[in-house]
Amino acid sequence: MKRRDAKHFRYVLFLWLAAGAAAQSPRGMDELKKSLDEVARTGSVMVDGDVCQRITTERAKEYMVKKDPRDRWIDGDNFDVNAEPYIQTKKTLMRLARLVDFPCDVNLWMPLDNIAGQVQVVIRNVNEMSQFWRFGQLHQPMPPEMKQVLASGERLAVIRRPGMVSVLAPVRNSLGDTVGLLEVVAQMTPDAHENVK
């Protein structure tokens, strides 16, 4: 019962925030940043950190840190997720991206439990936009901007690539711990052919 109430509350909140955040295509970087920040603020409320923590399987976590000189793909070939929490979270991220009417991705990032200073993108979305993801890497050193958001719990706008903006926002679990972060990302000039590969 409690669970259903919480779900209902989230849904109403989502609709309310969605109405406020729906925006026209951004005319400049400031407007883009503002729209993305609104999505990020909504995302911090909507994305369930407990569910996110259940996405990557324990086995995959073990393999993510394995090195085998005879098999350079040992980590990727053993990467696996639990479909249910993944799908639940991905759907929320996709809905968040629809709060704006221009191409936007909401990516989920989480620090690795078993290697300090490493972070992995857990869910990416259709446009494959990110200012941080390195193609093909399961995990990577944590960028200072992410470290800052995880430590402070405050949203942060980042411009690393010209014409692209990411707003990083914390994801919390039921204990109040910041367990991950969202990268809400868009670019001034969307490229229809980029990342079709």
């Binding site: 070939d77 990467f79 993944y86 991905k90 869910i123 990416r124 259709v126 093909g136």
Partner: peptide, 19 residues
């Protein structure tokens, strides 16, 4: 797609997990 590219929760290519 493959899970390792983080777009979807199942491997479409080179399936390894029966599920």
């Amino acid at each position: 797609h493959k899970k390792r590219y983080k777009g979807f929760p199942w491997d479409g290519d080179e399936v390894r997990f029966k599920k």
